[in-house]
Design a protein around this nucleic acid. Structure first.
Length: 689
DNA sequence: TGCTGCTCAGTTTTT
DNA sequence: CTGAGCAGCA
């Protein structure tokens, strides 16, 4: 598709006023956004007046790259109308956009801040729960989720409404104000603040808002169906003056409702932005006919309000998709792995063009084992995130603390790591002193000699910590040492490698952890190379900016170039495409997930069965050429073998598009106890039939 | 202070 | 059945 189709063209050519682009799966959405940006520039809109917002760093990176590609090609071919290029464009995530605004606005007010990631915030909630003696009675992450929801709806702690008899609401009502004031004392903001605070400043300060409106006259938003209320507010404020806002999304692919995304944003766009033009992209360039038929059939059954879309494709291909029925998950995995091997070996499909998708991460394990035994290389999307790893967070905590000594969460994290005699009891004593005297915890450490009830060893440890942090500050602020160098020095100074070697259990694990630390150094070096610094007024804000940016974008060395089979959750697969897709575990209780059928008290939002349908739809529409939906007749659930019902979504698929294949287990495989009991169950079932 | 053994829960997750 | 997180002990 080298030329734009009429709908795409309309979206690209539209210049002023609000525009909603309803982009069906595989309809060339990114292409429309990037071409539109190029077109705006071509018409003489200065790059600095354009902002394109995404949800992930990856999406922002890809978009920037593609815009650059178009412009680079065009620019060099016919270089006439003045400076025209992607330089100066703002293409970033909502959060880093918010960080930019906040940094600029706060700098004028002269205050620095640290960004707390989810783990840090969870620490704040846990501490608050402990302080009101409710530590183990409540799930801190459930409370944090409610706080986050409230913040995104601009609810102040004092306005938080408790639903009658909801224990989690009651505890959240108590924790919320403590959480907010803790963040303030720590000079910290959470991810939500990066969006909410901007919206708040803009609401309160017409002059500030006017400045930003003046700067950004063209707004583009990707994956609009995933925006939450705070993001909508931010966009409405920014677009208020010029009304040039173009959003692109697909309500059929709204799968983040549980995270606060409000699909009504895309459904009611025309109410929020009156006079909006609407363009529907329904031509699918990705999948062949059978897959599109299946996708359309599944999504047509949506019960909730939606923008009506029917995908079309001109791609022929396989007549049918496959539904694979296996007795148990091991056998399901075994067959999927064998088929993948055949596709690679016999049909010469590149591993990178194959994916196995599933509803929950736990399902990956059996697939991994099966792929390993077939000798097939794979890469796991998601899983434990790099920045969640302890050794990485520990090292970062030192740096964050050195830059912001109000950051008590980072302080608590490393005060006794590696062990230096400052135990839990001592920390509590220090915290108590700080509270009584109105000091920060760091001040309590600095002034430990004035405190009489702190043990000698703890005192010693505090002095040591103070010294390390002091030296670190000096290196960075006075000597101007680069972060990568300072981090290496620090790891050495605290004996991190020795610590990891001693406490990792095995040399292999120790090596892996140290490799993570090395990867952190790499990340630092890469960023230093990329960012020609010197823009910051001083070194302190340079490193602070650096660390904040790192908190928002902690991408590891990209391994995407490797030719490996992809294993991913359905959520993780959004936006990706593969020639061959296996969607495993198409069973009631898994897809749709049981927790959407039976909502827990800790859940923030009632889970929506329709969202599971959309998730299934997202899975189906990832496939270009071949799709296999698989399910098991029985599986172990919490140690017990349970018979499984096929997913309700399977029955929405037109029969004439399906080949059902029932497979059996390989008898030479030693059956585990669970497999045995599952087999017994299946035998009993057969007897009944 | 650190480890072992017990209990409990068990989706999706980016920023 | 597993893994995480905490309590109790050495």
């Amino acid at each position: 598709m080298s030329t734009l189709n009429p709908a795409q063209k309309k979206a690209v050519e539209h210049q002023n006023g609000p525009l909603l682009v309803l982009a069906g799966a595989g309809s060339g959405k990114t292409r429309v956004i990037t071409q539109r940006i190029a077109r705006l520039l071509e018409r003489g809109v200065p790059p600095s007046a354009i902002v394109a917002l995404t949800f992930t760093n990856k999406a922002a990176g890809e978009m920037a790259e593609r815009v650059h590609g178009i412009l680079g090609a065009k620019g060099s071919a016919k270089r006439k109308g003045g400076p025209r290029g992607s330089a100066g464009l703002t293409i970033c995530t909502f959060h880093s956009f918010g960080l930019g605004v906040l940094t600029r606005e706060r700098k004028q007010a002269g205050s620095a801040f640290t960004i707390f990631d989810q783990g840090d915030c969870l620490g704040v909630v846990k501490e608050a729960l402990r302080s009101i003696d409710a530590g183990k009675k409540f799930d801190a992450s459930a409370v944090l989720a409610r706080i986050s929801n409230a913040k995104n709806a601009f609810t102040k702690p004092s306005e938080f409404a408790v639903r009658e008899g909801d224990l989690y609401d009651e505890i959240t009502k108590e924790v919320f104000p403590k959480y907010e004031s803790a963040l303030r004392t720590f000079s910290a903001v959470d991810f939500d603040d990066l969006v909410c605070e901007v919206a708040r400043i803009w609401t309160d300060r017409a002059d500030v808002l006017a400045r930003w409106q003046d700067r950004y006259r063209y707004i583009l938003v990707d994956e609009y169906q995933d925006t939450n209320r705070a993001q909508l507010t931010l966009l409405r404020l920014l677009a208020e003056a010029h009304k040039n806002i173009c959003v692109v999304g697909d309500d059929d692919q709204a799968i983040y409702g549980w995270r606060g995304a409000d699909v009504r944003n895309i459904l009611e766009f025309e109410d929020h932005f009156p006079g909006a033009d609407v363009v529907k992209l329904e031509d699918n360039y990705r999948s062949c006919k059978a897959i599109i038929d299946v996708a359309n059939a599944v999504i047509a059954k949506r019960l909730d309000s939606r923008h009506q879309k029917v995908l079309r494709t001109s791609r022929e291909g396989e007549e049918k998709i496959t539904v694979l029925v296996a007795p148990t998950p091991d056998i399901e995995a075994e067959h999927v792995a064998q088929q993948i091997r055949r596709r690679i070996k016999d049909d010469h499909v590149r591993p990178r063009n194959i994916a196995v998708l599933y509803r929950s991460n736990g399902q990956a394990k059996v697939i991994e084992e099966a792929l390993r035994s077939e000798g097939i290389g794979y890469r796991l999307v998601g899983g434990q995130q790099f920045f969640e790893r302890k050794e990485v967070k520990d090292l970062l905590a030192y740096l964050k603390l050195a830059m912001n000594r109000h950051d008590e969460i980072s302080l608590r994290r490393i005060v006794n790591y590696p062990a230096r005699g400052v135990g839990e009891a001592s920390v509590e004593r220090l915290a108590l002193h700080a509270l009584a005297k109105g000091w920060t915890m760091w001040q309590a450490i600095e002034r430990v000699d004035a405190l009489d009830d702190v043990s000698g060893s703890a005192r010693e440890g505090c002095r040591e910590l103070e010294k390390i942090v002091g030296e670190l500050r000096k290196k960075i602020l006075i000597d101007g040492t680069q972060a990568s160098i300072a981090a290496r020095w620090l790891a050495d100074r605290i004996g991190l490698k020795t610590e990891l070697d001693a406490n990792s259990g095995s040399p292999q694990i120790a090596a892996k952890r140290w490799a993570n630390v090395e990867a952190l150094f790499q990340t630092f070096s890469r960023r230093e190379a990329r960012e020609i610094s010197g823009q910051e007024a001083n070194r302190e804000s340079a490193l602070e900016t650096f660390l904040n940016a790192l908190t928002l974008d902690f991408s590891e060395n990209e391994e995407e170039a490797k030719d490996l089979v992809t294993l991913s959750t359905l959520h993780g697969a959004k936006g990706l495409e593969f020639e061959i897709v296996y969607l495993i575990g198409c069973e009631e209780g898994l897809l749709p997930h049981s927790r959407t059928l039976d909502t827990k008290t800790t859940d923030v939002a009632p889970q929506d069965l329709e969202e599971e349908r959309r998730l299934f739809y997202v899975g189906v529409t990832r496939a270009k050429d071949r799709l296999t939906l698989s399910r098991c007749k029985a599986r172990g659930v919490r140690g017990k073998a349970v018979l499984r019902t096929p997913s309700r979504f399977l029955s929405d698929i037109p029969e004439e598009r399906v080949t059902e294949v029932e497979v059996t287990g390989a008898p030479q495989m030693a059956p585990g106890e669970l497999a045995a009991s599952a087999n017994a169950l299946l035998a009993a079932l057969d007897a009944l039939e």
